[in-house]
């Protein structure tokens, strides 16, 4: 399966890091000195020394809005063998989520990361469930060893963008006509 997913990513899917709306990214229960850019931003996430860490307990809730509508194909989550995340629930287009209402909605997909996939292998998702994604909520429920702190080294999302009308381009043409 891993070989199949890797080849699929290489064929059609792109890294969606360029389409993240950074001003809206939110992470609950993150440690202030180990915040979400450490796992999400280009450059930072490639450095294994920079982690996203949980604070009060092992759970993390990450909200990622996109600048345009995307299709999500697979997700890569990298962490250490002990403190890396285990059960990860993904919700599409759910805004204003908190820890108190994660159980109110059925997750679009649930990923249980194996010790193998935690080392940085992309995991295929239910592609049909992520065809029209404006925002993605990642809920990390527990970690590999059940310890108090969860550490995430890297999160990468792979998929494709949905063709939409570029409103900026439209305006420019109007300007030319005047």
């Amino acid at each position: 399966m891993s070989g199949e997913s890797a080849s699929a990513i290489h064929r059609n899917q792109v890294d969606l890091v360029d389409f993240i709306d950074w001003s809206g990214v939110e992470c609950l229960n993150q440690s202030t000195s180990h915040s979400v850019p450490n796992a999400l931003k280009q450059g930072y996430r490639e450095d294994d020394g920079l982690n996203l860490e949980s604070d009060a307990d092992e759970q993390l809730l990450i909200y990622i809005p996109f600048t345009q509508v995307i299709k999500l194909h697979s997700i890569l989550i990298k962490g250490s063998e002990e403190e890396g995340p285990k059960t990860v629930k993904l919700y599409s287009n759910k805004e204003h989520m908190g820890f108190s209402n994660v159980n109110d909605y059925p997750p679009s997909d649930t990923v249980v990361l194996s010790p193998d996939s935690i080392k940085g292998k992309p995991v295929l998702l239910k592609y049909v469930k992520f065809q029209n994604v404006r925002s993605l909520t990642i809920f990390i429920e527990d970690n590999q060893s059940g310890s108090d702190i969860t550490k995430v080294q890297k999160i990468a999302l792979f998929g494709s963008t949905v063709e939409t009308t570029d409103m900026k381009g439209l305006k420019k043409i109007e300007d030319h006509q005047h």
Binding site: L28, N29, Q30, D55, A56, D57, Q59, F99
Partner: peptide, 8 residues
């Protein structure tokens, strides 16, 4: 208190 902290 812990719940508050978790929700920042």
């Amino acid at each position: 208190g812990k719940k508050l902290k978790k929700n920042s």
